[in-house]
Design a protein around this nucleic acid. Structure first.
Lengths: 347, 347
DNA sequence: CTGAAAGCGCTAACAA
DNA sequence: TTGTTAGCGCTTTCAG
């Protein structure tokens, strides 16, 4: 019978060997033209190119990865995409990766356990050429592992002295907000945020520290009933806000640990018929897109930029062999919009 | 000197061979315990496990991929994450992938060219076990390629007869909105949306068709000045809305092709001092999170669910060998909130 | 139950 | 300039 035709049956994809055979060259030569190695005569190069086209051949990236040890991929580990801020940072990462040779594998950690698994696996396995960790602070042990690992790592929105990180001065941020409110004339300033003792996202702790210090520097004693803590979502924030606003002596201003929570506060204020900012001042933190929609006064921390800078740093690490830990601080600024104003009754 | 100790210097990571040596077994045996192959005596299994622990060995996933031909990875191709709807769908995908063995590689296509490259590469290369395409309709040629490919593919929010897809009935959606407005008493209903002839995202075309048909069925002639087209972003929508609202005979209701555009319309209405919904009714399409914040009447198309269903479908394809194209329709519903009401002056 | 050996598809060092 | 060969680290027959 027939059907002994070389290949071309739509079975297996062509390999480098098929191409070599077809072009009457060695397998090494094909590899050379694939990798733009100049030591190939123009003549054979054309022959190989023709064979590639005829066979519709594409190199197997996995095989290439195994052989070279490089994956052309960077891994991004971040929390499950619930918060707008994560998305915005990820956007920055994607943007910065756009015209590089790197693809992006997304590892989103729904649980601490999963986060730990990713930390473990990626740092000691050649799956990716570099790692970007977003909003997920590693423990000392994990940081050591990253540092010892062959794969460069940078932290975005997380800090560890052993690693490269892109961060923001959260103490300053907390101070700015508080000072601004004080300058506006507020004395009864509450803090509503994530659990202070949760190690999953420590930034809140610094924001709170900035708040507390500034308060005390201004001679305003910190009052524990003006501190409410809870999960980092809008509906929890609503409840916490209600708790604050039904106090015998309610605050005239609320500093929310993040914009999402600030939005929850706004919800409650509306429900309770409070006018913003007349009856209540609200300030958030992050600078997510919705903050602009809602005319929310907030601390702009340039989320998108943080992603971009994280990638830049990682790219540098990938280029050099050096890997001394370094910190890059992204400046923050208070964006004054419509949700903060002087209180009605000055004391 | 010394330093001739077997390994343990923090140079290269341990390989399966190191483990085999250390456990005094063959390399195949190690592989067996790695893969939970039952034909290993408990005794040697323990020995191997011990060696693994001592050497802190982790199998190289790349090598495993090359050897088995499976990557345990699914590729998601979607537009650059500018629209909230993409993010919401991606969330659904992530969620559904959470307790599967699959990781997720994200290919975000900033440009049509990049999209085409991804389509090409992924469909004919063993980089991923399955592909999920979101909001990116392939051409016939590309669809054929996907269908012929060894790697199962499903389309989410995109339709092609040759492929499996998760979609929504956009004609019906367009109808629902229009009929609702008509029932409310509107006669001057405008349509504001993405360019109708852009093949990059054809859904808008169907929504428009539903709008137009329903209008005509109700005996309301379509007026071309009530159709405005432009890029799919908030600020463009603002301008388009202004164009509509400064018409000699402005519409009493605007149907926006997506929620982001509806929000732009809301912006302009506010700028112009129009009360919503008294002076103007606005209805969006998508059901993004902000729609709820803003109390926007919209067509809820269950974005998150679409991602989940896409993964489910893909998982089925991955399990079976069958791959007959199939469509899964996700039901949509009109969510009536506060931005649509009867017009002031009934005709 | 286990060891040895043959790949997976490619790159890179080494001769020719 | 080119072909050949030896891996990359793992899985998987195939004998034993």
């Amino acid at each position: 019978m027939t059907d002994k035709s070389p290949l071309n049956s739509h079975s297996m994809p062509a390999t480098i060997r098929d191409v070599a055979k077809r072009a009457n060259v060695g397998i090494g030569t094909v590899s050379r033209v694939l990798n733009h190695n100049p030591s190939v005569s123009e003549d054979t190069r054309q022959r190989v190119l023709a064979a590639i086209a005829e066979l519709d051949y594409r190199p197997n990236p996995i095989a290439r990865q195994l052989s070279t040890g490089r994956t052309h991929t960077i891994g991004v580990i971040l929390p499950y995409l619930t918060m707008p801020s994560y998305v915005e940072r990820l956007r920055g990462v994607q943007h910065a990766l756009l015209d590089t040779e790197y693809d992006l594998i997304l590892f989103s950690a729904g649980t601490p356990a999963q986060r730990d698994t990713y930390f473990e696996d990626l740092s000691r396995t050649p799956r990716v050429d570099g790692i970007l960790v977003i909003s997920l602070p590693p423990t000392d042990r994990q940081a050591r592992q990253f540092a010892a690992s062959r794969v460069p790592t940078v932290l975005v929105d997380a800090y560890h002295p052993d690693l490269c990180c892109v961060v923001v001065d959260d103490i300053q941020g907390g101070s700015m907000v508080t000072q601004y409110l004080i300058d506006l004339g507020h004395r009864k300033i509450a803090f509503l945020g994530d659990f202070l003792e949760t190690p999953f996202y420590p930034s809140i702790r610094y924001r709170f520290d900035g708040y507390r210090r500034t308060l005390e520097k201004a001679g305003i004693p910190f009052q524990s009933e003006y501190l409410v803590e809870g999960d980092n979502d809008r509906s929890t924030a609503r409840q916490l806000a209600r708790q604050l606003l039904t106090l015998p002596d309610p605050p005239t201003a609320i500093f929310a640990g993040c914009d999402t929570q600030a939005i929850g506060v706004l919800d409650t204020a509306r429900e309770m018929g409070l006018r913003i900012p007349t009856d209540l001042s609200v300030i958030g933190y992050d600078g997510i897109r919705d903050a602009e929609y809602l005319n929310l006064t907030t601390v702009e921390q340039h989320l998108f930029t943080s992603g971009v800078e994280g990638v830049k740093l990682l790219l540098e690490l990938l280029a050099k062999t050096t890997s001394a830990p370094c910190q890059k601080y992204i400046p923050i600024e208070l964006t004054m919009r419509g949700t903060a104003a002087p209180p009605i009754h000055r004391i």
